[in-house]
Simulated assay, not measured.
Amino acid sequence: MQIDLTGRRALVTGAGAGIGAGIALALAKAGADVVVHYAHSADGAQEVVDTITTLGRRAKSCQADLTVSSEATALVADAAEFLGGIDILVNNAGHLVGRATVEEMSDEHWDAVMGVNVSSTFFVTRSAVPLLKASENGRVVLMSSLASENGGGAGSVAYAASKAAIVGFARGLAKELAPSNVTVNAVAPGFIGETAFHNTFTPSTAQAGIVAGIPLGRAGTADDVADVALFLASDLSSYVTGQVIDINGGLNFR
């Protein structure tokens, strides 16, 4: 069965590269018009927009620091104006920021991790809720992580905690928006290779060790995550809400 999102309007945050770019492209290939948010990856975001337009869909890139409430609000307003509303919100923006043990962690580090992963999701979602309620096909997809289940690697306590918070946010929001027929779900990727995240924070030897322990025998890809996000954004998931879908090749089971 082919997923058809023709006429749907999507905002994907953190879509200038990696998983976010993959999700934006997957939605567009299914027929959606997409606003591509980025924080720093202007060139990457424009490449995503250019690819989407070649598919015959409408697309626009927008820059914003989503840890700032006013910028998140402005992003949603800009997206809604360009698209004529919002049916699909994918909160992908997030970051490890850096590795630090709890003993050595500064207030600034903790705040930065919570800001980019949790506050940004809250700010964008809060602004988008009225638009999603007005849609006949409201969908919210949030980005958690395997770290929310297993605590993550060394020095990632703050990141793991932030991604666990996304799970609670998804489940609470799912109950809150269910009467408006808006579904809310999260995805929890495991090791996704060839991304700036792991290329920056995970040494190649550690990456090889992780892959060796994955039952399916390979690293995940951005497309692996995008396919699940596409399902959650579509009519095929109309009776699925408040769920967290693991995408880790069997590396961890709930």
Rank of each mutant, 00 (worst) to 15 (best):
A45I: 00
G16H: 08
S127L: 12
P130N: 04
V90M: 12
L66Y: 09
Y38Q: 02
P179I: 09
I88Q: 00
D235S: 12
A170G: 14
L25H: 11
S234F: 07
T53P: 10
G16F: 06
A165V: 15
F123K: 01
G85S: 08
A42L: 14
V124D: 11
F82Y: 07
G168M: 15
V141W: 04
V102F: 08
F253W: 15
Y38M: 01
D223E: 11
I86S: 09
T51Q: 14
A100G: 09
A147Q: 03
V240K: 09
V225Q: 02
A226N: 01
G250F: 00
N92V: 09
L96G: 07
G213M: 07
A59T: 06
D65T: 10
A59P: 07
K175T: 12
A164R: 07
S148L: 00
F253Q: 15
R8M: 09
L66M: 03
S120Q: 06
R9S: 02
Q2G: 10
G153N: 13
V68G: 02
V211C: 11
V167T: 12
I247P: 01
E176M: 07
L131V: 03
V97I: 00
F201R: 05
S41D: 08
S135D: 09
G22K: 08
A72H: 01
V182N: 03
T73P: 12
A32H: 00
T200H: 10
G242R: 06
A28S: 05
A100E: 05
V76C: 08
T73M: 14
G151A: 06
V49Q: 11
I86C: 04
F231V: 01
G16C: 04
G217W: 02
R57V: 04
Y239P: 06
F122D: 06
S237T: 12
A24W: 03
N181F: 15
L66E: 05
L251E: 13
T121L: 00
E149Y: 15
E194K: 14
F231A: 06
N91W: 09
A128P: 11
S204C: 03
D87H: 10
A154Y: 13
V48I: 09
V36F: 05
A79V: 00
S162T: 04
A64V: 01
K133G: 08
A178P: 05
A77I: 07
Y239L: 13
D224I: 04
D43Q: 14
R57I: 01
A32I: 05
V90I: 15
V116N: 01
T6H: 13
N150S: 11
G85R: 04
A24N: 12
A161H: 12
L89Y: 11
A39L: 15
I86T: 06
D87I: 10
